[in-house]
């Protein structure tokens, strides 16, 4: 019984403490860099699209809100022909970012994306693609991968030996 009264008294005392509420939008809160907000597609340090259209983000997505179509340029570099995220379905879980092998898809600190029309929440590639590298500045998938693309021949990637000359008789 006393404990009850003590509890009531303690609650009453809270009337004299300062509220912890941050008065958004008058006051903007601090958001950590790893905040899971609006999703973007980044570019590699050379300014090319990072996304290679591997479909891993779409398969990781628990609400299936990512759809894309992969394609290839004439030199073998892959990129998404179109890339769509339906933010009216997105739950900002960040699984797509975790699944992405090229750091292309990243979640940002922007969460102010309310719309009056749900259709405006469907973001296409031109809405998603930014001009920078986002959170991971150095990485360029094609410098590591073994495929040949325009400007990078076989054997020119990191940790690659030059291509084998099949016609050589040397052991």
């Amino acid at each position: 019984m006393l404990k009850l009264l003590k509890g009531i008294w303690l609650v009453f005392l809270h009337a004299f403490t300062r509220p912890v509420t941050i008065q958004y939008p008058d006051v903007k809160p601090y958001l950590p860099p790893r905040w899971r907000g609006r999703i973007i597609l980044s570019r590699d340090p050379d300014g090319e699209e990072r996304c290679v259209g591997c479909y891993l983000c779409s398969v990781a997505c628990p609400v299936d809100c990512i759809a894309l179509q992969a394609t290839e340029d004439e030199h073998g570099r892959r990129y998404p022909a179109w890339f769509r995220i339906n933010f009216s379905r997105c739950i900002f879980c960040g699984y797509c970012e975790e699944a992405c092998p090229t750091y292309a898809i990243q979640l940002t600190t922007d969460f102010e994306m309310s719309e009056y029309d749900r259709r405006n929440l469907v973001y296409e590639k031109e809405d998603l693609l930014i001009s920078g590298t986002g959170k991971y500045p150095g990485y360029n998938f094609y410098r590591v991968s073994g495929v040949q693309i325009g400007g990078k021949d076989k054997g020119e990637a990191e940790h690659e030996a030059s291509p084998i000359d099949l016609r050589s008789l040397m052991p």
């Binding site: 759809a67 339906n86 469907v122």
Partner: peptide, 15 residues
């Protein structure tokens, strides 16, 4: 069972 894009592929045509 891993089919993807269910809630996104028709979005431009039908929300």
């Amino acid at each position: 069972h891993r089919f993807t894009g269910r809630t996104s592929m028709h979005a431009p045509l039908l929300m």
